[in-house]
Design a protein around this nucleic acid. Sequence first.
DNA 1: GGGCCGAGCCAC
DNA 2: AAACGTGGCTCGGCCC
Length: 595
Amino acid sequence: MPIDIKNPNFEYIETQEELNKTAAVLSREAVLAVDLEADALDPYTLKVLLLQIGTEDKAYVFNGKLDLTPLKEILLDERILKLLQNGKFDYEALKASKGFSINNIYDTMLAERILTTGLIRENSLGAIAKKYLNITLDKDYENYNWQEVGLTGRITQKHLKYAALDVLVLFPIFKKQFEEIKKQKLIEVSKLEFRLLPVVAEMELRGTRIDVKKWHQNIEALKARRDEIVVQIQRELKPYYKIQQVDLFGSSDKVLNLNSPIQIVEAFRKLGIDLPSTGEAVLRKVNHPVAQLMLQYREAEKLITAFGENFLEKIHKKTKRIHPDFMQIGADTGRFACSNPNLQQIPQDSSFRGCFIPAEGYKLVVADYSQIELRIMAELSGDKVFLGAFDKGEDLHMKTAVNMYNVKEEQVDKKMRTAAKTINFGLMYGRGAASIGAQIGVGPDEARVLLDKYFKAYEGVKAWLDKAGKQAVKDGYSQTLSGRKRWYIMPDKGDPNYERLLANIERQGKNTPIQGSSADITKYALINIYDRIKKEGLDAYITHTVHDEIVTEAKESDVAAMTKVISEEMVNAGRQLLKKVKVEVDVKASDFWEH
DNA sequence: GGGCCGAGCCAC
DNA sequence: AAACGTGGCTCGGCCC
């Protein structure tokens, strides 16, 4: 039965008695659609205005002022499948404001992302409703200003219809979308992502604690250093410019903004130097004091702006902690992306990471996988030498250096090992000889020789990389060990960039199974850890994750138990997907973020 | 003044 | 700036 958009079938529940009765009816359903409307987006301050729960043909719209407790069991019930669109929001809103959790979720937004990874990013309810049902949902914010509803308490019939429709469309969307999921054999990865959703929501709610005083001190020190550098640059450029950043005296009226690449190119021209760009790699090769000073300036300036005072503005007024936004299928490979702020790009330096601290009476338990991507490459390629090295617990970069330079282990110096490491990682990114050579400081021909030796030592790796690249182009998609797919938009034969675009896809085809399988493993680990914490009743929380690393916070009395849990479950998750290669995890309990 | 884009650079 | 995979943040500079 098609949905009547103009007159959706719904009932507005305004009394406690009706709510109690309806809850009893709904608890017998196998599938329910769930959505809520709130007056804001922040789970810790928002007010739930409406909670909608729908069956296939009727939506029940509950007034948020009622005691919603009778509905709690329904949301928790593992036997009832709950359909949600972007359920992370609803989960966090209900958890923070009512203390409710939601089990057994099917998320239409995540499902759509899984079905179209690499192709489009149109996962809004409006876009999905259009795609599967060919209907247009009126999403005009002005017409349905929930913030205003929250203030005035006036809910119109129009608001109620809109709210009802949002749950009613989820059923037909689910049916069609799930058929596609089955057809594409994406059941396993869908289950993974759906089970992960509450884990991510809880992780965001927990957030992480920052040592504000230490953060300030760090920034002040950086500012002082930057200002010194600017004074030195000013000294050098005195004949030509005043530097905007200090606005010091100079013999010229011209003002130079050190943050402007265009102006920097011009400034170097005055010094008699033509720059192809002002990037780090170029400046490093310029033999002039200003170039070196610019590099130092950039480094300090970057840290001050990107990780300065504005970072502290992200501290939540109520919780006093930072609650970043984790997008669980952020990257097309399946990796998380993180924003507001991005905790996945905090400088490794202890002056920054040392500011991430546990709550009073807690410790951080930090764990990361050891060389997980190389292990995945060993698994995928089945390369005997790679597998053997991991099996014997050898240092793979060292072993690679031995093979590349035809020397004994004792003869491998730091430079050789670094070069070997660059090659090991570079090949996973599909890098070529010229590019790798440039980084390790040799010409393309010499790099070619090293690569040839590498591939001779690891024949399986070479064969797999070639195959993975070709297959991406041939199939139009890549796959990870969970079955996750990433599709590629194939270029037209007539495209002037045809060859270059195909080469891009080949590189992505080499990298995606590796990077994506790593993401799969970390995601399984997060779920496993979350379940174990609950099962063992530990006073512990996942606070954030950085690709191959999981950071948790545990009550001091539970630190030992948590250390065991995190280590076991990360290894278990690895073993779920990696059958041929050993998985190793480093765990450390600490008073700040380190490993 | 807001939107958008590229440059540059932080992470894994 | 480049034949290096995945992201996000801040800035300058351009457009309307």
